[in-house]
């Protein structure tokens, strides 16, 4: 057992911890907070509300694996939903155009930030901090006041439910309520699967890990470091754009206050999911569980009656603290075991 622990790669070790803790937490919620958590729909609701965060966190994990950081993602999400809202309701655009716009905005951010970070060697924190400011400010410039989108086609899309057979439940009156997920969840799942495969089984994906592990070595091993870093930012930007549209589909409105603090939730999710900010270690599945853990704990807090607004933030922070300390201790022990 000890041998196995020692030989486990850092990525797998942290992933295991994350998944175990998530299940413990969920089981705990079922045991202590009752039936609500037992219904599959409770779980699907988490997915529905967090689809955008899942996609954003995946992109962020990618950048973090290469040893960088992108804190502009929340701003990009807000900008995308506002721009799409304005396009649909005021400029007479259609849904296809809105999707293209979302992807375009995301890519633009990714490309510019990636260029500055990878080719001009500017610290990613500063670049994406400016990116965040820029996106947030631009959101206000695009449109100042929050409004709900009334575009008919969009509302139909937003309300589309994909029913999951056999997962439904009966309410108090005995009526069967089928379980459902939103389109956004499908997008998120596809993103998770694709990214997982890319990181695991493609050579280009392994380059992200190599660059994050040791940049200089990666260069010596014949990897185009700059291109890899650039690619990670472009991917992150693209995913933030997609996440923006998914978020837009979930909230159905544009507002400068949208997705506030999302970058921090995304960072927190990645870390809870076992991504090390120093780079080189991380896993998309872990990130998925990171998001789920984060939002489960929020649900638990609310169900437990601590419904004042501050408790949510304090518990998220406490949980982040817990995970960071666990990671720190585990990695230190592992090092000394060697």
């Amino acid at each position: 057992m000890k041998e196995k622990f020692k030989n486990m790669s850092d990525t797998n070790l942290l992933l295991t911890i994350t998944i175990v803790i998530f299940f413990l937490m969920y089981i705990g919620a079922i045991l202590f907070l009752g039936e609500g958590f037992l219904k599959p729909q409770a779980f699907f609701n988490i997915l529905n509300s967090q689809a955008a965060l899942i996609i954003t966190s995946c992109g962020l994990s990618l950048v973090m694996i290469t040893g960088g950081i992108d804190i502009s993602v929340g701003g990009v999400v807000a900008l995308v939903s506002m721009s799409c809202a304005v396009l649909l309701d005021y400029k007479g655009g259609n849904i296809a155009e809105a999707i293209l716009l979302a992807i375009g905005i995301g890519l633009a951010f990714g490309i510019v930030q990636g260029f500055l970070v990878a080719y001009l060697d500017i610290q990613p924190f500063i670049v994406t901090l400016a990116g965040m400011f820029f996106a947030r400010g631009l959101t206000t410039i695009v449109h100042t006041n929050p409004f709900n989108v009334e575009h008919a086609g969009f509302i139909a899309l937003k309300d589309t439910r994909i029913y999951i057979p056999g997962m439904g439940s009966f309410n108090k009156k005995g009526v069967y309520i089928p379980a459902y997920i939103n389109i956004g969840v499908v997008v998120a799942i596809v993103v998770v699967i694709v990214l997982f495969c890319v990181l695991r089984w493609s050579k280009a994906g392994r380059h992200f890990y190599a660059v994050g592990g040791n940049r200089q070595s990666a260069l010596m091993l014949g990897i185009n470091v700059k291109r890899t870093v650039f690619a990670s930012h472009v991917m992150c930007g693209l995913l933030a754009g997609i996440a923006g549209f998914v978020y837009f589909m979930y909230v159905g409105s544009g507002s400068p206050a949208h997705a506030s603090g999302m970058e921090m939730n995304a960072i927190a999710s990645s870390i809870i999911g076992g991504t090390l900010l120093t780079g080189g270690v991380g896993n998309i599945i872990g990130t998925l569980f990171g998001v789920l853990s984060l939002s489960t704990i929020q649900n638990i807090v609310q169900s437990a009656g601590l419904d004042q607004a501050w408790w949510t933030n304090i518990t998220i922070a406490a949980m982040l603290c817990l995970f960071l300390v666990i990671q720190s201790i585990v990695m230190a022990r592992k090092k000394s075991a060697e």
Binding site: L120, I122, F133, G137
Partner: peptide, 16 residues
Amino acid sequence: NALPAYKAVVVIALVV
């Protein structure tokens, strides 16, 4: 509320 956007442009220009 739009202030950050301009600030960002100036900051990027300086940093670049």
